[in-house]
Simulated assay, not measured.
Amino acid sequence: MAAVDFDMCFIFISCGWEESMHDSRIFNEILTNDNVAFPHPDEGKYYLVNSGYPNRIGYLAPFKGHRYHQQEFRRIARNAMANTPRELFNKVHSSLRSVVERTFGAWKNRWGFIRDMPR
C-alpha cells in the first residue's frame, strides 16, 4: 500500500504483505494499527483511494458500476462528458488519481530495479 501527494512524493509505503491479501484488509490493518505512522487526512480533507478500498470518512473511492477511466470518456466524442453526477465524480477522481500512476512510473523510470522486481 502506498500513498502519494500531488507533488509526486511518497508519504507512506507499507510493503511485505502476502500477494493474496485483499487491498481492503491491508487498508483496514494500516488505519487501525496505532503502531503504524500512517498520515491520516486532516478533518475536512480526503485521500483518493482506488476501488479496492472502502469509502469511509476521509477516504473517497470511485462509484462502482459507472465509467471511470479517462479513455472511457474519450472513446466516443459525444460521450466525453459525464452523464450523471456519479460519472462526473468518477471522471474527476480518475484524473486526480493519475498522479499516483505517474509517481510510480517516474520511480520505475529512475530506478529500473523497481520495474524488474519479482512479485
Rank of each mutant, 00 (worst) to 15 (best):
I76D: 11
N55M: 08
G44T: 06
I57Q: 14
W107G: 10
T84Q: 09
P39F: 02
I11N: 14
S51M: 07
R97W: 03
E72R: 04
Y46W: 15
V36C: 13
L88Q: 12
R115Y: 12
T84M: 11
P118M: 03
R110G: 02
I26D: 07
D7N: 11
A80F: 08
R119D: 10
M21F: 01
R119L: 13
L96W: 01
V49S: 07
W111A: 05
S51G: 11
R56D: 00
S98E: 08
D116G: 00
C9L: 15
R102H: 10
R25E: 12
S51Y: 00
K91Q: 08
A82M: 03
R67N: 11
Y53K: 02
P54H: 02
D5E: 07
A106T: 08
V36G: 12
A106Q: 01
M1A: 13
F63E: 06
M21H: 09
V99M: 08
R25K: 14
V49F: 07
K45D: 12
G112N: 09
R86E: 15
A77L: 15
E18V: 03
M1W: 01
A80E: 14
F12W: 02
V99I: 14
V49D: 07
R75F: 10
H22Y: 14
Y68G: 05
S98D: 12
R86N: 13
I13A: 14
L60S: 06
L60F: 05
D42V: 01
G105V: 00
F63D: 09
G52C: 03
C9T: 11
C9W: 15
T84G: 11
K64I: 04
S24M: 09
Y47K: 01
R56C: 13
G105P: 01
M117G: 01
A3V: 12
S51Q: 06
R115V: 00
G52L: 03
F12K: 06
F27S: 02
P41T: 09
E72H: 09
R102K: 01
I13M: 10
N79G: 00
P41L: 06
